[in-house]
Computed example of a mutant assay.
Amino acid sequence: MLTILYDGAAKMWPVYQPALSTAMAEAGIPARLALPGEVAPEAVDYIVYAPTGPVQDFTPFTRTKAVLSLWAGVERVVGNATLTQPLCRMVDEGLERGMIEWVTGHVLRAHLGMDKHILDQSGKWEQIAPPLAPERSVVILGLGALGAACARTLASLGFRVSGWSRTPKEITGVDCLSGADGLRTALARAEILVTILPNTPETTNLLNAETLAQMPRGAVILNPGRGNVIDDDALLAALDSGQIGQATLDVFRIEPLPPEHPYWAHPHVTVTPHIAAETRPSSAARVIVENIRRGEAGEPFLNRVDRDRGY
Rank of each mutant, 00 (worst) to 15 (best):
L222C: 01
P259H: 10
D306T: 01
R280P: 12
M24D: 00
Y6M: 15
R160P: 08
P198W: 06
I230T: 14
A50I: 08
P86W: 04
L222E: 00
R89S: 07
S282V: 15
A219D: 00
P60T: 03
P258Y: 01
T3W: 04
L236I: 09
P259C: 05
I230L: 12
H266I: 04
G182D: 02
S282N: 14
P216N: 12
M24H: 07
T272P: 14
H111V: 07
I100C: 07
S241H: 05
P51V: 04
A23H: 01
H106V: 04
I244R: 06
P258F: 03
P256L: 01
L5M: 09
N223V: 03
T82M: 10
V305Q: 09
D7P: 06
E38T: 15
G8Y: 01
G310K: 05
N80H: 05
I275W: 03
R97Y: 06
L33A: 08
A155R: 00
P267M: 07
G105I: 04
P18Y: 12
I275V: 13
N205L: 08
V139C: 11
G298K: 14
G8A: 10
V78Q: 07
I275M: 07
T279G: 09
G158I: 08
L187I: 01
A31V: 11
A238H: 06
G163S: 11
L236Y: 11
T62V: 15
L207T: 01
I140Y: 00
P30A: 12
S122L: 15
A247C: 06
E42G: 03
L143Y: 13
A43D: 13
H274A: 11
N291H: 06
A155E: 00
I128R: 12
V15R: 15
P281D: 14
A148C: 10
T59P: 12
P258H: 01
L33Y: 04
G37Y: 06
Y49D: 09
S165D: 14
G53K: 05
W71D: 10
A155Q: 00
A27T: 06
S162D: 15
N208Q: 07
P300M: 11
Q17S: 09
D115C: 02
V305D: 09
Y311C: 15
A213E: 09
Y49G: 01
E42N: 08
L112V: 05
D306P: 10
F61M: 13
N199F: 06
T52R: 08
R32D: 09
G182E: 02
D231H: 07
G142P: 11
G28H: 11
P130Y: 03
L206Q: 06
A72L: 05
A213S: 13
A50M: 13
D57Q: 04
G53R: 05
Q246W: 07
R109N: 07
V74Q: 02
G37R: 03
W125T: 09
A34L: 07
E126T: 15
W13S: 03
P130R: 11
T200S: 09
G242K: 11
A50N: 15
A148K: 02
V55E: 02
E290F: 14
G123R: 14
P273V: 08
P130A: 10
D45G: 05
W71R: 11
V220L: 04
E135A: 14
D231N: 07
L157C: 00
N80L: 12
W164A: 09
A155S: 05
P273H: 08
L95E: 01
A237V: 14
